[in-house]
């Protein structure tokens, strides 16, 4: 369970990234965070694995305040929290396999990882992860030879190889076309249900949020302005979160029900 207790974050330049956030995210939930650009979605997500450090309040994961963690505890926390990025963040010159096995780094001794000495179970796990996102045939290709959607699937496989309890995804489909976006979201959703991994995704598109989320959190100017199950959400809710009328650009389109 993830609990934000009055969490605030002020960036060194004085920008208020988060303002008194109080939310609770339950194990296995699929949460989508929406809001306009600059609302603080990335800041919220990155607080959970401490890529940014909140400056006030308490952030509890499984009842431990992660804001108190030193570097050793932090690395341990991060092995349990997988992250997916808008730009996939693969090492482009390395093979798919090398990228995916790097999900095990946190569990592997430094020397062993430097010499690529991974136990058979880890190699099998990496391969199985690639199979789950249907990209095992690209195993030994260089990752910059893959399409954007394929690279994002490799990134999901890397996270799966980590065997995390939580997956954070910061705009995972913002660089992809609509059909590929749906494919990637479907894989995320599948993984969430099959492995019961708590999943928190930042999205721009309201139709996608509605289609894949269990629960929607709306942000504006660093504050949570909406929090509720997807069944309660309609277009008016989004207009309230965004503080303006919904436009065409807020939808990705291309899903089955349209």
């Amino acid at each position: 369970m993830i609990e934000f207790k009055d969490v605030s974050l002020v960036y060194p330049n004085g920008t208020q990234g988060l303002k008194n956030i109080n939310i609770q995210i339950n194990p296995g939930e699929f949460v989508v965070v929406v809001g306009l650009s600059g609302a603080g979605k990335s800041t919220l997500i990155r607080s959970i694995n401490r890529l940014v450090k909140p400056t006030g309040g308490e952030l509890l994961i499984d009842n431990e305040n992660i804001l108190k963690y030193g570097s050793r505890d932090l690395r341990k926390l991060r092995t349990k929290v997988g992250m997916i990025f808008q730009n996939y963040n693969l090492v482009k010159r390395s093979s798919v396999m090398k990228n995916v096995i790097s999900g095990r780094l946190g569990h592997t001794g430094t020397l062993k990882s430097l010499f690529n000495l991974y136990p058979k179970e880890d190699q099998a796990l990496a391969y199985r992860s690639l199979q789950r996102v249907n990209i095992a045939d690209k195993l030994y290709q260089r990752s910059d030879q893959l399409s954007g959607g394929q690279q994002q699937r490799v990134a999901i496989a890397r996270v799966l190889t980590q065997q995390p309890n939580i997956i954070l995804a910061d705009e995972p489909v913002a660089s992809l076309d609509p059909p590929t976006s749906h494919q990637v979201m479907t894989y995320l959703r599948k993984v969430n249900k099959e492995d019961n991994i708590t999943t928190i995704v930042n999205l721009h598109f309201i139709d996608m949020a509605m289609e894949y989320a269990d629960r929607i959190i709306g942000m504006r100017a660093g504050e949570v302005v909406y929090d509720g199950p997807v069944s309660d959400v309609n277009e008016a809710t989004f207009e309230e979160i965004y503080g303006r009328k919904i436009r065409d650009e807020d939808r990705v389109g291309g899903s089955d029900d349209e």
Binding site: R78, F85, N89, L105, G106, T110
Partner: peptide
């Protein structure tokens, strides 16, 4: 710098 962030985020030293 993106892959560096990814490796840090997955607990790499």
């Amino acid at each position: 710098m993106n892959p560096i962030e990814a490796i840090r985020a997955s607990g790499g030293n």
